[in-house]
Simulated scan of single mutants.
Amino acid sequence: MASDLSDLLAPELIVLGLQAASKKALFSQLGALVAPTLGVDARVVVDGLTAREKEGSTGFGHGVAIPHARIPGLPRTVLAVVRLAHPLDFGALDDAPVDVVAAMFSPPQAGAQHLKALARVARRLRDRALVAKLRGAGSPDAIYALLCDHGVRDAA
């Protein structure tokens, strides 16, 4: 199903209560978080996120951001979801600080696949009721269940 993100979301890459004082600090922590799972150097992740963010903010409103980067050596697109302990200024279009971050990483050659995955993630996170549930989720498993259709049925 198009709204199911289980093909992208890595359960070990869901973190609640992450402390970050700036976008730079957030990107450093994301690099450290995802590098072991992705099998890449954390610096490559940080540099990719930073370069993309310089093109324009990935904060798309209502407290949500989707920073993303193309990372050499990845076999597939992977999504990490972080709920920040304290909202962070992301330069979003609506000026709302961000507390829900869905970071997406794709192989450089992904092309249309990267854009389609990004659109799917954005579609899900545009749903304010879902984002409210993500903010209230008590565990990484609960967030996984909310973002993966089969998990929602199992959790009901």
Rank of each mutant, 00 (worst) to 15 (best):
S139Q: 02
D7V: 11
A10N: 11
A80K: 08
H86T: 15
S6D: 12
Q113G: 08
D141I: 05
F27I: 07
A42Q: 01
Q109L: 12
G39M: 09
R52V: 06
F27P: 05
D149S: 15
P97Y: 01
A10R: 13
R124K: 13
A21M: 12
L38H: 10
Y144T: 09
D94C: 08
H150F: 13
V101F: 07
L115P: 09
G91I: 01
A80M: 00
K24V: 14
R76Q: 13
P11F: 02
G17I: 08
D127C: 04
A35K: 01
R153E: 08
S3E: 15
V121F: 00
A117R: 02
G56C: 12
V100I: 12
L146H: 02
M1W: 12
L74A: 10
R128M: 11
A156R: 15
A42T: 05
G31D: 07
P97A: 01
R153I: 14
E53I: 02
I143Q: 08
S28E: 15
A156G: 14
R123F: 15
P97K: 09
P108R: 11
A102F: 07
E12P: 08
V46K: 08
V152A: 11
A117T: 03
H62N: 14
L16A: 00
E55I: 14
A51Q: 13
D141W: 03
S3V: 14
V152M: 09
P87K: 11
R70Q: 13
L118P: 04
H114P: 04
G138N: 08
I71T: 15
G17E: 04
L130W: 03
A110Y: 05
G48H: 09
L33E: 00
L38P: 09
L84Y: 05
M104R: 08
A119E: 04
S22A: 14
V34F: 00
R126A: 15
V45D: 00
A102Q: 05
V152G: 10
S3Q: 15
A25M: 14
L30H: 02
I14V: 11
G151D: 07
A155V: 11
Q29F: 10
C148H: 02
